[in-house]
Design a protein around this nucleic acid. Sequence first.
DNA 1: CTGTATCCGGAGTGATACTG
DNA 2: CAGTATCACTCCGGATACAG
Lengths: 119, 119
Amino acid sequence: MKNNSKAEPQCSRCGIEYAFKRIGGKYKARILWNLKTGDQLRFGELLRTLPDVSTKMLTQALRELEIDNLIIRKVYHQVPPKVEYTLTESGRELLPFFKHLDDWASSQMANEVSSLDNE
Amino acid sequence: MKNNSKAEPQCSRCGIEYAFKRIGGKYKARILWNLKTGDQLRFGELLRTLPDVSTKMLTQALRELEIDNLIIRKVYHQVPPKVEYTLTESGRELLPFFKHLDDWASSQMANEVSSLDNE
DNA sequence: CTGTATCCGGAGTGATACTG
DNA sequence: CAGTATCACTCCGGATACAG
């Protein structure tokens, strides 16, 4: 549990740092982005959506997102367990950012293939 | 450098993934954000700006940002060496998004302290 | 189905010393 | 001043097994 409820003291202009601690993980951004439709997704659905994630990492990312109040974890106490995740209000506020970032990435990728660049 | 117009591997909606590979590191976003003023910054200045970064990590992040065409590395061949970093056009296109993120973070932080939530 | 616990290899990172 | 090289170490993250 690495949640720091304390506000950052020194770096008032570094909300960037604050933000990236919350969405900067390897999977967090994609999880949020996959929830953008507004529908709730189940654990297994998210697992299938992110090809390279394991249950452990997904659980961990989900927990942290929940702690940071970006997603809501809704548990159905049924015999086949069922858990659904949805964006919170704060999480939804991030969507325009992701949208623009997605657009930026598209233009960058288009630009890359036209020039000679690879990783 | 022949290119097919559709170079997307499998995840066309995951420009997010592409973007975060470029700006999602621990320091990259803050480096770019610190260059937002449009001024060029020297290596040592960046080092002082990011409190928790070592020369090795800073160099590495800077190299990757340069490779990804987000910053420009200008070297002055002088007896006291001098290197300045500036944003490229692509890098500057990211600024509005960081701004948005920064605003979001500010409201989140304000919300956190006012709601006084702990475990 | 939705997780949790554990092991373990390797990638990421820091400190230090050194170079041009 | 602006890096590079090396070593040592932490810890991320995958695989597996297991629990509710």
